[in-house]
Design a protein around this nucleic acid. Structure first.
Lengths: 214, 214
DNA sequence: CAGCATCCGCTTTGATACTG
DNA sequence: CAGTATCAAAGCGGATGCTG
């Protein structure tokens, strides 16, 4: 991208991360950790493969990412965020908070990847009863199951299945988000097609308290 | 800009504010308040006039700004941020923090407008002696003079001159920023060409304490 | 002057095909 | 798996002109 050539921190930040796709590549690496090229392409539906390659080169030169050859048996290149790249988290978080109200509507024909849930869930949920036994919620939406776990007063989300989850949510991304972020109560979410099994009390334990305008 | 078509708050935020110039228009309106078309164009050196007009239309449709006919004697159109638009401040702040380290180098041939100083100064400075009499620093850098004032434990910057400022800084944008953000001590800043008049103790009163990595 | 619209050359993007 | 090559279409920057 052409530089703005302004002596202003905001403009110079945008010179580095303002180009199309760049912040979304950062998002992918923040959520998923080190990724293969193919993982990135799957997490960025619609990106042209030449553009992904080009952005990765630019981001490496800008010091945002580092490319590392994984040792066997993986034996492939992994793209890592550098420390400087990881410092973009506040920017991604701020964008995610601001964009929150835009994803309260149903999902339409937008693309969806289940790992994208990790960001809003970790941003808006927390464990209101950190002294009780930790809980696990399994989410089945999108391309692969996700686990939501309480740890240390916070909520962590990661891909995976649980042996004995306290609850299982099955539905679309917007149904799951609507229920967990508190826009929909359980009855309404079910009416819209969400399946819920398990202990409904876990919801009140993690959902945002003062209905933040999410 | 073409939509990413992803069901993700970050991507949908970028669908609205990710296009070239948009965040910088928000920056201008956050710093300057309601602006005329001409004010915006002056604060965005390098923007093509057709692009500014197009962005303003898009931003109005997206609910970020509102256009209002100022009453006489001004009698011109003023572009305001809506509440929703003003909620982008955390995004701009996060970008400004991340970009901070990029503007520690000298100014080179980048464009500079003195009102851009307001953002880093209000972001990084604060009044460490809020119980003492408020102070005023006048800054002469760039296109017009700025005032830095302590109020309520915080620091406010705005265009203007002071009758009896506690200090006057004259130099380039990078010299002024270097001194006030604490990368340069007074001696070093002077050696680089900054002129300082007044009480040098005001510096320690407002400069960041634990030299944050700005 | 303030607030645009038009035109034109150039760059960036997106879609697809192909390769070590 | 991890890219490169190609090409049409869209977006951008600069210059200029128009209207109240």
């Amino acid at each position: 991208m052409k530089s703005y050539r302004e002596y202003c921190a905001v403009a110079q930040a945008l010179d580095v991360v303002g180009e199309r796709w760049t912040m979304l590549i950062v998002r992918e690496l923040l959520i998923q950790g080190p990724c293969r090229y193919t993982d990135l392409r799957n997490g960025l539906p619609g990106i042209a493969t030449n553009l992904l390659a080009e952005r990765l080169r630019e981001m490496e030169k800008a010091g945002l990412i580092r490319r590392e050859d994984a040792p066997p048996p993986v034996a492939t290149t992994l793209f890592h965020l550098t420390d400087r790249g990881a410092e973009l988290r506040p920017v991604v978080d701020a964008l995610g908070r601001w964009g929150g109200p835009l994803v309260t509507r149903p999902i339409g024909d937008d693309e969806f990847r289940s790992h994208w849930l990790a960001m809003p869930l970790e941003l808006h949920l927390s464990d209101h009863a950190p002294d009780r036994a930790p809980i696990t919620i399994e989410i089945r939406a999108g391309d692969h199951p996700m686990l939501v776990e309480t740890v240390d007063g916070k909520v962590r989300a990661r891909p995976g299945r649980a042996e004995h989850p306290d609850a299982v949510l099955t539905g679309t991304g917007s149904q799951v988000l609507g229920l967990l972020l508190g826009h929909l109560d359980l009855a309404e979410a079910k009416r819209r097609g969400l399946q819920f099994e398990g202990d409904s009390e876990v919801l009140d334990r993690v959902r945002p308290r003062i209905t933040e305008t999410v």
